[in-house]
Each structure stands twice: as C-alpha cells, then as structure tokens.
C-alpha cells in the first residue's frame, strides 16, 4: 500500500509541474501587454517600463516561470488589480462559498444517482423509464435556465426558499469562521437561526448545480449495475438462496459502484470549477463571480491562479479517488499477494 501511494504521489507532482508550465506559457502567449494594461493607455514609456520591471516581465520566460512558481508555492499568488487585493486573499475569501455549494450539490447528485440507479436496475420494468427520462432531461437542461425556473417556482411563486440573495439573509451576522462553510460553522457554534437560514439559501442553487452531474452519474451507474446484475457471480449468489434484494445490495451495488467512484472525483472537481452560471444567477459570492470579472478585465494573475488551483484540485481528487478505489476494490491493491 505504501509503494502504491508513493507511486501515485509521484504522478501527482509530475502532473502539477506540467499543468503549471502549460498555464504559464498559454497566458504569456496571449496577445496584449499586462504592463501597458496596468499602467493605463496614457502612461509614458518609462512608466510602462517601470511597471514591467516591477512585474519581472523584463526577465526571460524561464526566470519568470521560476519566479512565479516559487511565489505560488510560498503563497504569493500575485496582486489582482481588478479586486484591489492580493490573489491569495481573494481566493481565501471567496473559495469557501464555492466549496460549500459544490459539496452540497455533490452529495445531492451522488445520493440521488445511487437511489435512482439502484431501483432502475432492480426493477427495470417499473423504474428504468422514469429514471431514464429524468436523466435525459438533466443532461439537456442549461443550468442558468434551471436556476431561473427554480427561483420563479420556489422563491417567487411559492415563497418556500429565499430569492437570489447570496449565502445568508442580510439581517443576520455570519457565524465566526472555522471551516468557512456557513452551515458547518453555525452548527459548530450552536447558532441554529444562522444554520437554517444558510441551509435555506443553499437548497435551490445546490439543486440547480446538482441536476446535470446527477443525470450523468445516474446513467453511468444504471449501466454498471445492470451489467453486474446479470453477471455469473450474481446468479451464483442467488443459487445460494439469498433473496433478490439482498443480492442486489450486497453484490450488485458493490461491484457496480466501482467505475462510478472513478468518475465522481472528476464530477466534484467540475462542480467547483464550473459553478459560474449558477453563482451568477443566485448572486452567490464565490469563485465563479471573481473569475468572470477577472477575465473581463484581463486580470491575468487571478486567471492564472485559478487555472493552477484547478489543476491542483483535479490531481488531488484523482489521488483521493485512487485511494478510495483501492480500499473498495481488492484487485487494485498491489500488495504483492502470495498465491
């Protein structure tokens, strides 16, 4: 297991180095002069040169890369002039909101997919039509449209959930920062008013964000479960006299879940990096909003940090997925077993 882990870690480092080089080079190749952008169109040449020197842009690209990457590792991610603060500070402030949203959406998507796929593969005649229809709709529904419909129905018409007003009603004080997730922090400090309000604000955006990955995971999982439901080992379990439902839960679900674990890591990463539209619709103060702003203003320090962070996120989640898969599937544990 140690050797397995060590091998995976080495792969992670390699991927990250490659991703950082790619992100760095692509942003340098894009036309436009950041020094000119920062100094403004009216600045004279010596001012632009001063800014360029200050940014280190007069060095060659290898030196620039080394300078940037050592800064990134030590927490200096540059300065965002569009937000007027350091990039690291900006992310520290906005990331928890996105994480909280993505986490809830992920739980909804995974639990929903397991429930629907389990029934669809257990009694295909009854459930598979419903599950298939819903997941097809999910795969084809634009997230911003779904967000608006949810707001119209559950907020404007029925009034059961708050409107697009961020993470917490404006008259409430946010709980003290422990994890940065309002629902968790309010529970930890015993503030139930904050908790129920934060939860109510989370429900609609989380559902809007979860629908697409739920649909994707449901289809994938149903296919895998249906396959293992007809596998010879399932017939053998039934021939022992184990009831159909127990067979399904104990053996079919366990085997059918394995390929889904691999994809769910990527699904979670895509929820964090792809929540822009939902955040915009619900006025959710997360990463998506600052990213849109940074791209519009050509604030490359933010974009570059976002690309690198996404790479870190994807590789870390892949590592987690590998470890979890190794725990669930004995064939992946390369322990040098004796025959």
């Amino acid at each position: 297991m140690t050797r397995y882990l060590f091998g995976r870690l080495l792969g992670v480092v390699q991927t990250l180095v490659l991703a950082s080089i790619l992100a760095f080079v692509v942003l340098r190749v894009v036309p436009g002069d950041p020094a000119r952008l920062i100094a403004g169109p009216l600045a004279d040449k010596s001012t632009v040169n001063a800014v360029r020197e200050q940014l280190g842009l007069n060095q060659n690209i290898v030196q620039q890369y080394l300078h940037y990457i050592t800064g990134f590792v030590s927490g200096d991610w540059g300065f965002s002039y569009s937000a007027g603060q350091s990039v690291a500070g900006l992310f520290a402030q906005k990331l928890p909101a996105t994480l909280e949203l993505a986490l809830f959406a992920f739980v909804i998507a995974v639990v929903g997919a397991i429930v629907f796929a389990t029934f669809a593969s257990y009694r295909p005649s009854v459930f598979s039509g419903v599950s298939k229809g819903l997941s097809l709709i999910g795969l084809g529904t634009p997230q911003f449209w779904l967000s608006l419909v949810l707001l119209l129905v559950f907020s404007s018409a029925l009034g059961v959930f708050p409107g697009p007003s961020g993470r917490l009603s404006s008259y409430l004080t946010p709980p003290p920062t422990i994890t940065g997730l309002y629902t968790v922090d309010s529970l930890l400090t015993g503030n139930l008013v904050d908790f129920s309000d934060a939860l109510a604000h989370l429900v609609l955006p989380a559902f809007a964000l979860a629908f697409l990955p739920w649909a994707f995971l449901t289809r994938l999982l149903t296919a895998n479960l249906t396959e293992s439901a007809t596998a010879p080992y399932t017939v053998v379990v039934r021939s022992k006299g184990v009831s159909p439902w127990l067979t399904h839960i104990r053996h079919v679900l366990h085997n059918g879940l394995l390929p889904t674990i691999a994809s769910s890591g990527l699904v979670f990463a895509s929820l964090i990096t792809g929540s822009v539209l939902v955040e915009e619709t619900f006025d959710w103060p997360g990463i998506g909003q600052i990213l849109v702003l940074a791209i519009q203003r050509q604030d490359f320090a933010v974009v570059q940090a976002f690309v690198l962070l996404s790479a870190v996120l994807y590789t870390i989640l892949n590592l987690v997925v590998d470890i979890v898969s190794g725990g669930v599937d004995p064939r992946l544990r390369l322990t040098g077993a004796t025959r």
């Binding site: 010879p232 021939s239 064939r331």
Partner: peptide
C-alpha cells in the same frame, strides 16, 4: 449449482 465459468462465478470484491 456449480456454474460453468469459475473465473466469473465468484464476486471479485
């Protein structure tokens, strides 16, 4: 029952 293919007749996990 003893089944045809021993390679696929046992639950791999």
């Amino acid at each position: 029952l003893v089944f045809q293919d021993p390679l696929t007749s046992l639950d791999p996990v």
